[in-house]
């Protein structure tokens, strides 16, 4: 499996606010890659940068091995997206909307192609209806049809279940599964709901305040044996470089003024003794039960993330 998307040291500030802070991650071909974070965590900003809607302040984005800033059109020709709400031309029919965006994607539009796409999302019988007459779910499906009409390799869905009823949510999940399993597409799905990501994604990234908290295989990350440890020391910089050197498996990272580690609880004594030997004084060690609990603790205060429905 090759690398489909590679993001390195991406930064974006809006005024004084860092929306995306030194973010790096990799999406492999065939992944359903979950993008998890509370509202305002920087998901949308990142996704918009992947789609060239927002210019990064620094950092590189490579898609299919091509630099996005240099080969924008080549990349976008093979990318389909639904960003937030699936807004379309309200005064045009479903057919017109779809054929306009298909043409813009460089597709040779035939009636059959458009009708097949509408059929796929269950809107064939509403092809002549204006988009303004559609329900939220129908708009979402039309949006998906627009994202897929040019047969892209990479599909980016930003909060695709927002505003959908339970049936719509279920349909969306099965659609994402189909795209990946049957059609071999790479899909990036963002959500502020952990269970949403958990149910569809194979790999995921958790971001908070524009920074990466954790990235990995969903099943492993949500394994209760896997614990997030927050470490406070007198010299975080020295401690971090030491930890990265001695315990690369712990994925040490500096978040604000604490060091975050992904590790088994049983390794904590080994961690403390190693640090003590080097003269770094430990101020606090706080093990979390699991990634899930950690994510919830991040977001519970603002009540943005509902508990996973396990």
């Amino acid at each position: 499996m090759g690398v489909m998307l590679e993001v390195q040291n991406l930064n974006k500030k809006f005024g004084d606010i860092k929306a995306v802070d030194d973010l790096s991650f990799t999406v492999n071909e065939g992944d359903v890659y979950g993008f998890l974070g509370q509202n305002g965590a920087g998901k949308s900003t990142t996704i918009r940068m992947l789609l060239t809607l927002i210019r990064p302040d620094s950092g590189t984005i490579k898609v299919f091995g091509k630099n996005l800033s240099e080969q924008r059109n080549e990349v976008l020709r093979q990318t389909g997206a639904v960003v937030e709400r699936p807004d379309l031309y309200k005064y045009l029919s479903a057919y017109d909307n779809l054929s306009i965006f298909a043409k813009m994607s460089g597709v040779k539009v035939t009636r059959k192609l458009i009708m097949d796409q509408l059929d796929m999302v269950g809107l064939a019988d509403r092809s002549t209806s204006k988009a303004k007459t559609f329900s939220q779910g129908m708009k979402q499906r039309l949006g998906i049809a627009v994202a897929l009409v040019h047969n892209p390799r990479l599909i980016i869905l930003d909060e695709p279940t927002n505003g959908l009823d339970p049936q719509g949510i279920a349909d969306m999940r099965s659609l994402i599964g189909n795209l990946s399993n049957e059609m071999g597409k790479t899909v990036i799905v963002s959500s502020h709901l952990l269970n949403e990501i958990e149910q569809v994604a194979s790999r995921m990234i958790i971001i908070n305040k524009g920074r990466k908290i954790a990235e990995g295989v969903v099943a492993e990350m949500l394994d209760p044996a896997h614990t997030i440890v927050q470490l406070g020391t007198t010299d975080n910089v020295k401690a971090l470089s030491l930890l990265l050197d001695k315990f690369p498996d712990f994925h040490a990272s500096l978040v604000e003024d604490t060091i975050m580690l992904e590790m088994s609880k049983s390794d904590i004594p080994k961690l403390i003794s190693t640090l003590s030997l080097t003269g770094v004084e430990i101020l606090s060690v706080q093990p979390r039960h699991s990634l899930e609990n950690y994510f919830l603790s991040l977001t519970n205060a603002e009540n943005h993330v509902e508990p996973a429905a396990n």
């Binding site: 789609l51 060239t52 809607l53 924008r72 937030e84 031309y89 813009m104 994607s105 460089g106």
Partner: peptide, 14 residues
């Protein structure tokens, strides 16, 4: 205003 701008600008058109 309609929200179509972001869709328009994710198309391979400069």
């Amino acid at each position: 205003n309609m929200g179509t701008l972001r869709l328009l600008l994710t198309k391979p058109v400069s």
